[in-house]
């Protein structure tokens, strides 16, 4: 379980997060939503200790990750898989080596086992055979999927996806949504999905948390989301061309 407790974060004079709290339960899929620049990525980086809050705590399985030593923090991080917004593939390595990297670094698997594992992960993201390509030779969507393969290679307990579907075509987006859902269901992974794609939220998340004006504005289940009268939430959802209260027509959505 991950608990974010009353964190504050400013860059210079500019507050980005103020008094933000959030609990992520074991096994659930939580969507963090909000406008561009609202601090979603900043919040996500706090959860793995890449950023330190000015005030407040982040607890992973009860451990305050900012109160432990660096080597202990690294052990906590090893339970996470992270898909960064831009993919963050190592551009000195080809796709295969990117996915193999965590396996080579953190397991004692043989070369053969690693090769099988990498091929399996690339299959899962529907990219068989791209192993030899360098990141610069991959399209944006392909990079994201290779990065996803890398994030799941070690079968982490927690996965954080930062905008897994942004900038992708509707079909690929659906594929990625399915993938996230499958991973969550089959491997019992706890997932945090940072997104502003409401279609994703509705199809994969158990709960959603909306960041607005530096605060945690609204947290609730998807059913709550449909019922909510909160103006900011409704505006956000509406801007994504969805209509709350009509869950029976989960929209012609992205296909349009």
């Amino acid at each position: 379980m991950i608990k974010v407790e009353h964190i504050y974060k400013s860059f210079g004079e500019k507050p980005v997060l103020q008094d933000v709290s959030l609990t992520i339960e074991e096994g659930e899929t939580l969507a963090i939503i909000g406008r561009s620049g609202s601090g979603k990525s900043v919040l996500m980086k706090h959860i793995i200790g890449l950023l330190k809050p000015d005030r407040g705590r982040v607890l992973v399985d009860g451990t305050d990750i900012n109160a432990i030593s660096y080597s202990e923090l690294r052990r906590v991080r090893q339970q996470f898989g992270v898909l960064f917004q831009g993919g963050a593939l190592f551009d000195s390595m080809n796709a295969f080596d990117n996915v193999a990297f965590p396996l080579q670094t953190f397991t004692t698997k043989t070369k053969d086992e690693i090769r099988k594992e990498v091929e399996h992960c690339l299959d899962v993201v529907h990219l068989p055979g791209v192993g030899a390509k360098k990141p610069s030779e991959l399209s944006g969507g392909m990079k994201k999927r290779v990065a996803l393969a890398r994030a799941i290679a070690l079968r982490p307990r927690y996965i954080i996806y930062d905008e897994p579907t942004s900038g992708l075509d509707p079909e690929t987006s659906n594929t990625i949504d399915d993938l996230i859902k499958n991973l969550a269901d089959q491997l019992d992974i706890t997932s945090i999905v940072v997104t502003h794609d409401m279609h994703s939220v509705l199809s994969i998340a158990d709960r959603a948390a909306l960041i607005h004006a530096t605060r945690m504005h609204w947290v609730g289940t998807i059913a709550d989301l449909h019922r909510s009268n909160d103006a900011v939430l409704r505006a956000f959802v509406k801007a994504n061309e969805y209509f709350i209260g009509e869950p029976s027509t989960p929209s012609a959505a992205r296909a349009s």
Partner: peptide
Amino acid sequence: GTMRVTEQIDALEAMGLN
């Protein structure tokens, strides 16, 4: 610098590497 601004350094850290 490129690794920093494209979050590759964050990715290394996030894996639990120094």
